[in-house]
Design a protein around this nucleic acid. Structure first.
Lengths: 111, 111
DNA sequence: CTGACGCTTCGACAATCCTTGAATTGTCGT
DNA sequence: ACGACAATTCAAGGATTGTCGAAGCGTCAG
């Protein structure tokens, strides 16, 4: 994960509809959701949704596969984790005393 | 952390210079850096840097305090963590079998 | 082969963001 | 009080992004 792709990923998430779509896909997990299912939950016209999904796709945050007539989008977990690792990289210069602030317990699982 | 402030935070990070500045502040830790120090490392004119720092400030990602003639910026750890927690919230619908993909080991510490 | 469906691409417009020089505010040493 | 310094505010431009109707492409049922 380099700075350029991190910027692209953040830009992809920096929009109300895209963030909402991405969070639906995070919740859906590896099985993903069809474009139509996402459009239904977000209430967007198809062309607008495609526009946003392409941004997420181009940023590498989601993957795309075809299932008969539908197109299924799914989160790319490694991209999300890489993004977070990039953000916290070398946090506090590596001082152990500061480390808890960099990756606190409540992040370990979203239970 | 609601969707609106998450969008604001991602938008703040979705720019080359702001992401670079923020990462400098993450590395600097609680002590922070002066605006001039950041400008020096990034090679930006002062007005441009202020513009970007204001975005980070307004998004709640950094804090601002004055030290005599200088203004010191520092990361707000709780905002960064809240952002990551928001992103992974309810990951995979809470399925334990999927959870490792949502917050893998290498994120726990940036050692 | 035909019609219907799901999604994407195209095109044009409106809205927003980024950049930077010049002027301004706040602070310090003398 | 004065000059110097650090940072911010202001203003104007050029560039980028978001929106969505209409048209096109691939897929499936009959």
């Amino acid at each position: 994960m380099d700075a350029t792709s991190a910027v692209a990923a953040f830009a992809a998430l920096a929009h109300e509809h895209r963030l909402a779509a991405y969070r639906l896909l995070v919740e859906a997990g590896p099985d993903g959701l069809s474009a139509g299912a996402i459009a239904g939950q977000l209430g967007l016209p198809p062309s607008s949704l495609t526009f946003h999904l392409q941004q997420l796709l181009h940023a590498g945050l989601v993957s795309q596969r075809r299932a008969s007539r539908q197109i299924i989008y799914a989160m790319v977990a490694v991209a999300m984790n890489g993004l977070m690792a990039f953000l916290t990289e070398n946090c506090c210069g590596g001082q152990a005393s500061c480390a808890p602030a960099c990756a606190p317990a409540e992040l370990s699982l979203s239970a």
